[in-house]
Design a protein around this nucleic acid. Structure first.
Lengths: 208, 208
DNA sequence: TGTACATCAGTGAACGCGCGTTCACTGATGTAC
DNA sequence: TGTACATCAGTGAACGCGCGTTCACTGATGTAC
């Protein structure tokens, strides 16, 4: 391993902070939020235990930073998917919704622990949701609302918002339960097909 | 408070165990699984800390007993609902599915912590699911499979099973996200309507 | 360029708390005669 | 019915572990002159 040289103290600090968040992300990805231990992290990035608290006020903030990253990566994945599907006709819109739902599944599959952590954090917090998290969520949300506008042009913005939330929650439910190994789960090989079926079925439900 | 007299030691033990599970249920209902503390429980049922371990080998078993109760109550609630809806025509079947989904939402609402605990337990366990839990799950599952048999008589048992799982997961997702206070959640007042809409839309999807 | 001093990143032992579980002991209950 | 003994439910102090966070200290880095 090369030992990097840093011209200034602040550069060094930034590099350490990056290394810390990287390490935290790796730990959570491997063992979930409960694997985020101060001593492990300090050892992994090669600083003393106490030094951790020069970089970050507490471990909660670290978990938040990791979740922020995860949410952004999810956003990028969905954007990339959306960009691959045109949005001219209602049929396009349905296809895009299916593609986005599948991309959501793929992301959850490929980032299981990180993705789960996204939903576990709330449980702890009486504190309010930070601003950035709110914005991130709304941005993701827009990926669903956009095609719905093509499918339901006559509906109000608010009505479409409600539909988008319902659709997201339904797909999310299939993914959550599907990626656990429960008896009642849709088996993993069938998940893609079932999600597609659900999205198409509900879209068909719009017209009637 | 009356002090109950017990004719035999084993009766007394059973009464204590019942009191313990009651107390555990109350604690979880109030503060979630993390509120299940040995000292609190012992104090609440009026025995010494160590005595707890004469009644139950460890706290995990206690949590399992509580979840078993919850699952059974959920089962009863769904059965009661199913019994109120006939199942002769396909229309009946759709109505019953809607009613069952609503009953699921109502149960989750009315037993928020206990119901969440049902899904949190697994996270901890590498251990296999106990037999009774498996049976409980399958029994619940049957409430969905039954009306589906009326709607999809031409499909195989397995195919209907898959549909049932997907439908359950979708409704579950709406409930989960709806009962958290997330930005992206379907607002609580709209939950019933949205669930009904989703179930009817997917059922309409069957015919096409 | 060299010297004196100040700052603050970096250190790791120690604090503090929570909490499940154990264990040596006691006293009430039940049995044998 | 009474006595001696055995059992075991019941007790709570103590163990043990995990772990986030603090804090007094040190030494390297940077600044002033």
């Amino acid at each position: 391993m090369m030992e990097a040289r840093h011209t200034s103290t602040s550069e060094r600090r930034q590099a350490q902070l990056d290394a810390l968040v990287d390490a935290a992300e790796r730990r959570i990805a491997t063992g979930g939020i409960k694997a985020l231990k101060a001593r492990d992290l300090a050892a992994e990035i090669g600083i003393a235990l106490g030094g951790l608290y020069n970089l970050v006020p507490d471990l909660d903030e670290l978990a938040l930073r990791v979740s922020s990253r995860t949410l952004n990566r999810l956003g990028e994945a969905l954007t990339a998917t959306a960009d691959r599907w045109p949005l001219a006709t209602p049929d396009d819109a349905v296809n895009r919704l299916v593609a986005i739902a599948q991309a959501y599944l793929a992301f959850a599959r490929g980032n299981l622990s990180l993705w789960r952590t996204l939903f576990e954090l709330r449980l702890a917090g009486d504190a309010v949701l930070p601003e950035w998290a709110a914005n991130d969520q709304l941005r993701l949300f827009h990926h669903i609302a956009e095609p719905l506008a093509v499918l339901l042009p006559q509906q109000t913005e608010a009505g479409r918002g409600l539909t988008a939330r319902t659709l997201f929650a339904a797909v999310h439910g299939i993914v959550v339960i599907g990626l656990e190994d429960r008896l009642i789960a849709v088996p993993p090989q069938a998940l893609n097909a079932q999600i597609e079926w659900l999205v198409r079925a509900t879209c068909r439900g719009f017209s009637t």
